[in-house]
Design a protein around this nucleic acid. Structure first.
Lengths: 154, 154
DNA sequence: CTTGACCTTCCCACGATGGGAAGCCCCATG
DNA sequence: CATGGGGCTTCCCATCGTGGGAAGGTCAAG
């Protein structure tokens, strides 16, 4: 099996297969006399394992641990579960960060009338460093200078 | 104002201030005779604006647009809002991706007894490419080979 | 034998940030 | 005035995972 075929069979690009080999995530593939890499069905299995772990958002180093456990007959599932839950925890943290950003920006966008006039709570908030906006609960005043076209920012 | 003072006042590292100047996100700072960058209060305002936008997770190119609108007296708030909502949309997409990963892995971790034995649904799923696991609803069978210490994966 | 598709290695790029080296500048203290 | 420490300058490198592309070798079909 060529690298191209292994790539098609595993869903991992040839470029990435070489990279994974280079960093020692997967064992070095065999070679033909001409220097072409050769892959077995077991190699493709490993590549699929890696790809699935990547799909779950895991960084390479965590995958390296999992591959090690996967190939360790004497592993304990507790170790695997610990790594998985560690990743779940990081995912949750990331989700919370993004959600906070999203909600803050949604609040600002909601307060912006979004028409042809330059007056814009979004820019005002960015300018003020989000201080007033987060002191209370989203928008700090009831868009009072709503008619004033001239009260711009910078 | 030195770059160090501008950094402290804006919350943007000196390294990043130079970088932002280098990529043209902020205008080139003035210089003393000795070549030191000099910053005004207005420059610090711009830096704070950028930092706040970064805190909302915006990539530099989007911030570049916003800075342009911010300094454009004739801007329309609709343009600002459109950019903001575009970013909200991308944040939501990212959150959805991470949530999907998180739930998938949580389901697998939940199905894993996490003890000293090697039998592990997490590794089995990674090996199988998540096919069986997602066909139904999380775990595909009721951990039936629970006592079998020998039914390992690779 | 030619041609086109594939493989090889090597370098570069991204995006945003930090680290660090080599060298110059400024100020304060002795 | 000299010296030292800290701040400034530029330049290079690293991250992390991925893709692009060049230059050259190989393989299989026509």
């Amino acid at each position: 099996m060529n690298i191209g075929q292994a790539s098609a069979a595993s869903g991992v690009s040839a470029k990435m297969i070489r990279y994974y080999e280079g960093i020692g995530l997967i064992p070095m593939a065999g070679r033909t006399e001409a220097g072409y890499r050769v892959y077995t069905a077991a190699d493709v299995n490993t590549l699929r394992f890696v790809r699935r772990a990547r799909d779950l958002g895991m960084p390479i180093e965590r995958i390296r641990l999992l591959v090690g456990l996967w190939q360790d007959r004497a592993r304990s599932s507790g170790d695997v579960k610990r790594i998985a839950l560690e990743h779940v925890s990081e995912l949750r943290t990331k989700i919370a960060e993004l959600t906070a950003m999203c909600e803050a920006l949604e609040g600002l966008a909601h307060a912006c009338h979004g028409d042809h006039r330059p007056d814009c709570p979004i820019l005002e908030d960015l300018e003020a460093g989000g201080r007033q906006a987060r002191t209370r609960a989203g928008r700090r005043r009831r868009v009072d200078a709503d008619q004033g076209v001239s009260s711009e920012a910078a």
